[in-house]
């Protein structure tokens, strides 16, 4: 069941334990003029709780896009990915794996687990801004949100 509502700013969930990284992503999106609202969880368990609206996340919105790091405390990015894609209500949300790793194994595993895209973390701000614009084009078109 697809909802095609809102021209409101896209809700983006960033799952990353590195605050420094999270902030840079947010700033890069801002620099790139991408209107979006960010939510951040710092480990895998929190991320799933957010998506399932459990505990403190009972009022959380359903995100239009998930930016998922692979190396997370408690529950790894792969486990989070697997659980999202295993749940009927969550699997339509696009998950973009954003990782420093470029190892072939990591890339293949992520796609096997139904990641929508695997993107290496850009090494500079310009690259990050470009990435934001690309993601906006691909998944944050207000008319075509699948989340």
């Amino acid at each position: 069941m697809c909802d095609y509502p809102s021209s409101a700013p896209a809700e983006i969930l960033i799952v990353d334990d590195n605050a420094c990284d999270v902030r840079l992503i947010k700033e890069a999106f801002r620099e790139g003029g991408i209107a979006s609202k960010f939510h951040v969880t710092r480990d895998g368990e929190q991320a799933l709780a957010f998506l399932r609206r459990e505990g403190p996340y009972s009022g959380s919105p359903r995100p239009s896009l998930i930016l998922l790091d692979l190396n997370l405390p408690r529950k790894s990015g792969r486990e989070v990915l697997a659980e999202i894609k295993a749940e009927q209500s969550l699997r339509r949300i696009p998950v973009v794996v954003l990782s420093a790793s470029t190892s072939r194994e990591d890339v293949c595993r992520a796609y096997e687990l139904q990641a929508n895209c695997y993107v290496p973390k850009p090494s500079d701000l310009a690259g990050l801004i470009d990435l934001g614009r690309l993601l906006q084009k691909l998944w944050l078109n207000p008319a075509l949100l699948s989340g």
Partner: peptide, 9 residues
């Protein structure tokens, strides 16, 4: 990446 990223910013 952080250093260059924030310096860029």
């Amino acid at each position: 990446r952080m250093i260059t990223g924030y310096l860029d910013l």
